[in-house]
Write a protein that binds this DNA or RNA. Structure first.
Lengths: 233, 233
DNA sequence: CGAACAAAAAGTCAGACTAATTAATCACAG
DNA sequence: CTGTGATTAATTAGTCTGACTTTTTGTTCG
């Protein structure tokens, strides 16, 4: 899925990035560009471009006479969408989902508060539509349909906040929600209380009630934290 | 300052990244790799590597037969430290600082709450030390010294939260604090109330009082928002 | 209006050469 | 004999060049 066949460069980048984030080539290990190029069957040009991109993500450091060194995890650009995708595809997916969910719990309530102040009428309408869609798909095992509306809902809130840093977390939230749905026991309908909360958030935003929108969204994210046992019940 | 003389690649990347984020080459404009290489006096290899990195930051899109197209701002990887540096160096620095400060106001209180639960004794000691350093430099125009302790303080809190996504915002917060100090009227000592709040946060974290740490940090960030007139006074 | 064709740009490859950095070697003084 | 400093050698990334391929788009012709 993540490997589109669009050119050698992307393919090689994906393979290497995945390998590094997956923990083979642990931090400190050194790779040689030429050897990698040969191993993956590409020219040095292509491999060099891939290494440069990995370097810009702080996954590796390239130094003369020594080679390409894998950097410690703490230095990786963990906000890079590609890095996030690689890590979600690997072994520390659970850990990654927890980190992202905690981030959500900090950001989304504030974003909802801002949305209540800044949302355009169009965005309010869109939000209500999403909430209604969630209600309509909340029963009878229509999990995929529910997911679509859920993702759209949170994306609209983040965009409506008017803050570009928040808006950019849309993909991230989508990733978390999708991950949650696809790793939960299927056939289990979403929590009715959560559905209600979404409807109420949409209403609060439309009414311009920032405090209420923030508080309701906080309840939603608290629920998400509880699902992962990050919070004590 | 951002342009170290470490190789052609880094130089070219910096020049191009700055130019794009500064708004010359507006979104939609198309550049040709060969022409750029010639203009900047480097070989195609080097230019191609730079373009690939810019592409991974979603600043540009490279397509056959058309060229390198500058993408709209909304698609840029705004969490990439390099992109942030470029934008802070450019004309929309004020806008950037506002966005980052709002992000801070969402993240730091939650991070402080987590820190109160997770901080090690060493981190608590470090935090207290930072707070004392802030007190010691809070009068008499020792703004640079104060800034150092302030940055260290917030960095420790973010690290102590135990969440890697929060920890990675340390550089970002440092950038914001430095920007604020250096653009404010010099010779103006920091708000005594803010200094007190930092001391109290350190104390709350040491005591393991998550709610109080969160609330106090929220007051700090609210103050930061007010400074930028994001909040009504 | 559709299909064949031509042009333009990025993508890929191969090879030669450069430069920086580390490691080994060797000479010399203590 | 040993430690230390400078010189040399080896290794790897960095850079450049030129040829060739592939994809996409615009054009032309049926």
């Amino acid at each position: 899925m993540s490997t589109g066949a669009r050119g050698q460069h992307a393919r090689v980048l994906d393979v290497l990035g995945l390998a590094i984030t997956a923990g083979e080539h642990p931090p400190g290990s050194v790779l040689r560009t030429d050897e990698l190029a040969e191993r993956l069957g590409v020219s040095r040009s292509v491999m060099r471009e891939a290494v440069r991109v990995l370097e810009s993500m702080c996954l590796v450091e390239s130094r003369r006479r020594v080679g390409v060194t894998v950097r410690p995890v703490e230095e990786w650009n963990v906000y890079d969408p590609q890095v996030i995708r690689w890590r979600l595809a690997g072994a520390d997916r659970p850990h990654q989902l927890r980190s992202l969910t905690v981030l959500r719990s900090a950001v989304e309530p504030v974003a909802a508060g801002l949305a209540a102040r800044n949302a355009t009428p169009e965005q309010c309408a869109e939000l209500t539509e999403c909430a209604l869609g969630m209600v309509a798909t909340s029963r009878g095992g229509q999990l995929e349909g529910y997911l679509v509306h859920d993702i759209a809902f949170h994306r609209v809130v983040l965009n409506a906040s008017g803050n570009e840093m928040f808006a950019h977390l849309g993909d991230l939230v989508a990733e978390v929600l999708a991950g949650r749905t696809h790793h939960r026991v299927m056939f289990e309908d979403p929590d009715p209380a959560a559905v209600t909360l979404h409807v109420q958030v949409a209403e609060a935003v439309r009414a311009g009630d920032a405090v209420r929108a923030e508080e309701l969204t906080r309840e939603i994210t608290v629920g998400a934290l509880r699902e992962l046992d990050i919070l004590a019940p």
